[in-house]
Write a protein that binds this DNA or RNA. Sequence first.
DNA 1: CTGTTAGCGCATTCAT
DNA 2: ATGAATGCGCTAACAG
Lengths: 336, 336
Amino acid sequence: MPDLKKKITIYDVAKRANVTIATVSRVINGKENVSGQTKEIVMQAIEDLNYYPSPIASGLSKRKSQEIGVLVPFFFGEFFLKLLDGIAKELHDFDLILYDAATPEQKKKLIAKVVGENKIDGLVVVTLPIRTDEEINLRKARFPIALIDTMHPSYSSVCFDNTYGAYKAVEYLTGLGHQRIAIISGAIEDPFHFTVASERLKGYKMGLSMANIPINDKFIQINDWSRLGANVITKKLLAMKDRPTAIFTVSDLQAVGVLEAAREMDIKVPEELSVLGYDNMDFSDFLGLSTMSQPLSIASQLGIELLKNEIDSGVNKKEKIILQPALIERATVAPV
Amino acid sequence: MPDLKKKITIYDVAKRANVTIATVSRVINGKENVSGQTKEIVMQAIEDLNYYPSPIASGLSKRKSQEIGVLVPFFFGEFFLKLLDGIAKELHDFDLILYDAATPEQKKKLIAKVVGENKIDGLVVVTLPIRTDEEINLRKARFPIALIDTMHPSYSSVCFDNTYGAYKAVEYLTGLGHQRIAIISGAIEDPFHFTVASERLKGYKMGLSMANIPINDKFIQINDWSRLGANVITKKLLAMKDRPTAIFTVSDLQAVGVLEAAREMDIKVPEELSVLGYDNMDFSDFLGLSTMSQPLSIASQLGIELLKNEIDSGVNKKEKIILQPALIERATVAPV
DNA sequence: CTGTTAGCGCATTCAT
DNA sequence: ATGAATGCGCTAACAG
C-alpha cells in the first residue's frame, strides 16, 4: 500500500513524463523553450499526480517565497479589518503573512527579524510610524517596503490627509454658522507615536483660523480615544456657561460618547448640539452620525500596487499618494 | 565596500567562530551537545554578524516552516477580527499566514493548494464547514488541522453551542412572561452552508416547546442577516393583529434593524417590545442591546492549543470542545 | 564534543 | 529542445 501522504516531488513528475526535472521545472515556470508536445505530457503528469511544487524548495532556489508580510500595530477594529481585507484581495498569488506588533518593542523585534530572515518578498507596514532606529534596520532589507496610512521619506506610501480632513470637518461646521466648536482629540502621546491625533488637531485649528474664529483652549480636549472618555469630557464641555454648539471628535467611537452624554443631559442633537465624528464606522450609519470617511479599500489597493511594482521593477520610487477623506452628512449636524 | 545587503549565512558565522556549520546549527537549534565555551563564541559571532537563520533553508531541511495557516471565509467584521486577534496572540514563534476564502470555489482551491504545497506546519479552519470532497483532500494533509467555530468528525475543534445559546435566549424571554416570541433568523441556505442559522433556529424552537408555547410559523422569519432585512420584517411582524411581544434575532446587526423599525413605528422598547440579539458586538454595548455573548478569545486560545498539541505530539485526538454563550442583560428586554 | 557529508526539492547554468 | 550537474542555506546522521 502506497503512502498517500508522501510528498510528490518534481522527480516523480519527471519520471512519469519521461523527461528530466529540468524540463518539468521549465513547464512549471512557464519557460518558452519547451516543445508543445512534451509540455502537454508534463502537464498531464502533473495533473495525474496532483503535483504541487514545494514553495519552500522553490523559494530556496529562486530566493523568492511568494509571501508578502503585513505589519500591523494590533487589531484595532474595523479600520484595520477593512484595510487588511483590501490587501488580501489584491495579493493574488502571494501568500499573506500577518505580523502583529502589539507593542513598540514587539514591533522593533519583528522588524529586525523580518529583515534578518529575509523570507518575504515584500513588506507593507500599516499605520505604524517608522522610527529612526527601525529605519536603520529596514534599510538592510533585501525586499521592497510600502507604507499604508503612515509615511516615511525612504519608502512609497499611501496615506490619508488627516489635517485636511479635520479642516474640512470644521469648515463644514463653521459654514453652518457654528462659532463655538470644541474638539475631542485622542492622546497625542502614545507608545507607538501615532500622528493622527495631532494632524487632526492641526486641521481643526486651521479650520477655525480660516473662519476667523479665535482658538479657545477650553474647547480643545484630549482623551484616550474612548467612548467613555469622550462622554466624561462632553459633560464638562456642556456644563460650561458658553458651551459649544458643536463638538468634533477625532473618531466615531468618541462621537458616540458625546451622543450619550448629550442624551444624558437632555441636550438635543442636532438641534442644540451638532456632533461630527471621524472614520465612518459601520455603526455610524445606523446611529445617523455625521462623519468623515476615508477610502480604505482604495488605500490598500494602491498600497499593494506600489509594493508589487517595486517587487517587479526592483526600483524604489518613493511615491507618495495622499487620499482625501470625504464628508458624510447624516443626522447629527445642523445649522446653529 | 562590502554589500550590506548580502545574506549572512551559517558559513559566515562558522568561519568567524572557527567552527563548522554543524556546530553553529547545533547552537541555533539549542542542542545539548555543545561545550559552553564554543557555544558562547558562536552566539557572539551570531550577534556580531546579526545573523538570522534562513527559515526557508531551515524549512526545507527540517520539513517545517514555522508557519501556521488560518483559513477564514471572508472578512466579516468583529467576530472574525476577535478570533483572529486571539489566534495571533497565541502563535508565538509561528508565523501566521492568512488564507482568505472569499467564495466556496476559492475555499476548495485553497484547500487543495495548501494541502498540496505542504508548506505550513498546521492549519486552523475558522467558521467554514468542511464538505466531504474537501475532507478527502484534507485527509492527505501532512500537517495537523484544527477547527474553530465549525466541526467535523475527523478533526479537533472548538465550537460555540448555538442551539443551546438560542435556547437560553428564548428561555430568558419566556421566563419574563413572553408568549408571543418571534425569531428573525439568517438565511439557512448560503453558499458556504453555514450551520449557525439553523442551529439557532433549532434552539428557539426548543425554548418554546420547553415553555409549552406552540410554534407559530408566522413568527419564524428568515432573512439575509442584514439590518435592513430585519427592519422590513419587523414592520410586518409588528403590524400583525397579535403582534409579538418579543423579537429574538440571530445577530446583533439584525437586532439593530428591529430597534429601528420599532422606533419608526413608535413602539417603545422594551416597554412594548423586547429585543434580544446575538453576538454581543461592540456597538451593542452602547446601544444597550441585550444579547448573547460568545467567548471568542477563549475559543481561539483553545483552538491553537489543540493545534499545537497535535503538532508536537503528532497525534490527532479529535477533541471536541463546546463553549457556552452567555446572556448579556442590558436595556432592550423587559417583562411583558 | 565537533567535523564531514549527504540530502531537503527545486532552479539554473552549461552542454548537447 | 532537453539533459546533467551545481548550488540555494540549513539539518541530521554518521564518524571520530
